[in-house]
Amino acid sequence: MKLTEPVTGSPCWVELGTPDVPGAQAFYAAALGWRSETDPRPEAGGYTMARVGEDAVAALSPTYRPEQPPAWTVSFATEDADDSARAVRSAGGTVLMAPMDVFDLGRFAVAADPSGAVFSLWQARAFTGAKRFGDPGTLGWTELRTVDVEGALAFYPAVFGWTADVSERFTHWAVDGAEFGGLKGLPRDGERGQGETPSRWLPYFTVGDTESTAARAVGAGGAQLSPPRRVPGGPCVAVLADRRGAAFGIQAP
């Protein structure tokens, strides 16, 4: 990811929704080396900040509904969450949670693209997002896995102003010329195999070594969904799941 700090339209934060925050704290400490701190204020609802050193890099949050599956959500920076929510609707997406203020930290909304991939909008005030990108233990890439590639190529540029470098092998997303993620097509409903998931955003965290990180994750109670492999001309990547099944990627430059 060719970003060192959040800019308008770029990924700025990642958050895990899980019914077991203490278990997630232990798992990601073992797998990625995170140190985590839970906000003690009752109104914070158990929101937990994960850090690399002193820098905030991600969050662990209790799920809000019993039926909500454990999952990672990517947040994208916006100058105006309300305007971006309107842009989501105009482009055919859905606003799942209307914009709301989060203390003095910023303004937040949850949305889904037309294929159902969920993401968040973040209008920064006191909190701008992750303090580091691309270092070990921090967000290094984001990937949209979707059943509607053409729809995604229309939706996200309309909402965020992204550009897409489309090739036969892979499609890269960029904002202001800086690449930050990719696009991978999935089979449509009725064509997917057992266990294949619908559209979603998948965060990739940078690690020093993919194989040893995958082994630590499995040893901590997680699972290996996609074994380490070398991307031609790129990093070594793998897809893992934590103890509760939330999927995430890792990459070693």
Results as ranks from 00 to 15, higher is better:
72 W>I: 06
75 S>K: 10
24 A>T: 08
54 E>K: 12
31 A>C: 14
51 R>C: 09
35 R>M: 07
42 P>Y: 11
107 R>H: 13
56 A>N: 12
23 G>I: 11
57 V>N: 09
23 G>R: 08
15 E>H: 00
69 P>D: 10
95 V>S: 07
14 V>W: 05
81 A>D: 04
83 D>I: 01
91 A>Y: 09
118 V>D: 02
20 D>C: 04
37 E>V: 12
43 E>V: 07
106 G>E: 09
28 Y>M: 00
11 P>Y: 06
47 Y>P: 00
91 A>N: 01
4 T>Q: 12
24 A>C: 07
103 F>I: 11
22 P>S: 10
92 G>W: 10
113 D>S: 05
30 A>T: 10
21 V>F: 06
58 A>R: 05
13 W>N: 13
76 F>V: 12
116 G>Q: 04
15 E>Y: 05
9 G>C: 02
85 A>K: 03
114 P>A: 08
24 A>W: 03
47 Y>Q: 02
17 G>E: 04
73 T>H: 12
71 A>L: 05
24 A>E: 05
18 T>C: 04
8 T>W: 03
107 R>P: 12
69 P>V: 05
27 F>E: 02
104 D>M: 13
110 V>D: 02
100 M>D: 04
79 E>D: 12
85 A>T: 04
46 G>K: 02
26 A>C: 05
72 W>M: 02
82 D>H: 11
46 G>H: 04
116 G>R: 03
26 A>R: 15
79 E>A: 15
26 A>Q: 13
86 R>D: 15
113 D>N: 07
59 A>G: 15
17 G>P: 01
68 Q>S: 10
116 G>S: 11
53 G>I: 06
9 G>P: 01
116 G>W: 10
45 G>S: 13
25 Q>H: 04
39 D>L: 09
77 A>T: 14
48 T>W: 13
18 T>F: 04
73 T>I: 14
114 P>R: 13
34 W>R: 02
32 L>G: 05
99 P>M: 11
91 A>P: 03
60 L>A: 00
100 M>I: 06
45 G>F: 11
13 W>D: 13
96 L>F: 13
66 P>C: 08
27 F>L: 12
70 P>A: 15
69 P>A: 09
57 V>K: 10
108 F>V: 05
91 A>H: 11
35 R>C: 03
23 G>P: 05
65 R>N: 08
56 A>K: 14
36 S>C: 15
71 A>C: 01
104 D>Q: 14
107 R>T: 08
12 C>P: 11
63 T>W: 01
44 A>L: 07
67 E>I: 03
93 G>D: 02
15 E>I: 02
79 E>T: 03
120 S>N: 09
122 W>E: 04
21 V>W: 01
52 V>M: 15
43 E>F: 06
115 S>I: 02
55 D>N: 06
21 V>H: 07
73 T>M: 09
3 L>E: 11
